[in-house]
Nucleic acid binder design. Sequence first.
DNA 1: CATTTCATGTAGCGTATGCTACACTTTCGA
DNA 2: TCGAAAGTGTAGCATACGCTACATGAAATG
Lengths: 134, 134
Amino acid sequence: MSSLSNQFAKTRTDHASETAEDYVEAIEDILGQQDSCRVKDLAQRMEVSHVTVTRILQRLASEGLVTKEPYGPVSLTPTGKQMAQASRRRHELLLEFLLALGVPETDAIRDTEGMEHHVSEATLRCMETFLANR
Amino acid sequence: MSSLSNQFAKTRTDHASETAEDYVEAIEDILGQQDSCRVKDLAQRMEVSHVTVTRILQRLASEGLVTKEPYGPVSLTPTGKQMAQASRRRHELLLEFLLALGVPETDAIRDTEGMEHHVSEATLRCMETFLANR
DNA sequence: CATTTCATGTAGCGTATGCTACACTTTCGA
DNA sequence: TCGAAAGTGTAGCATACGCTACATGAAATG
């Protein structure tokens, strides 16, 4: 029961790192489609105002995940890239798993967004096993 | 891709209702174990200060989910009970599913806490089907 | 090259959640 | 029954994220 309570607390203080993961993943994604990632691109993608993006980018920069000059484009640091790729792996694996489970694509995509930050390595491995043996 | 972006936005504004679900579920749980649920019980359970609990309970009361007199115990309204039971169903089903998938109990419990608020009805049904056909 | 337009930055506000410190109620035991 | 202990409330602060409004930089266009 204590692990349960611990998790309640953890969940609540982890929103900042969830946001970090969402952003670095989005940045990597955008950079895979176009040559630069701008505040505007992120604002559109995340459906928030550019102000919110700017502030979050400042925090991510202070955490060493992104680099950005004033009025310049956003890029990922090596640490940021690493986080983005780990996040992406979870994202894609989870989505594939839900689809394999029979979840309609619309729901699977939606659920993946919410769930991806809460899936442990252990669970990911079980999902991989499930996919391999299906 | 737009449903993906929509979900980003939704995820970010849904923390309040996630908290509501956590709390009503915890309250129901506590009331199943003892005759009354106090601020102190919730504070211990959620591992936050009693101040945080008090404030959240005020919000939940204003939303019609709980009732509470000053210095008195907490109880669930019919609406609150309903939310608690729906939340509990998701919780238990998800946990059972993860265990059936082979996830170690410790990880399964932890993951369930984080994921339960992000699992759609569609996915829950698929998990039920999986459990039935295993 | 000037002006308009688009992108970005900053100021300032709101909500939700977290805390410590202090005040007040309730409860319990000497 | 009265004082200490436990529980609860309130004040005030911090962080994260959301916004609008306004200022400024950059880019595009006539």
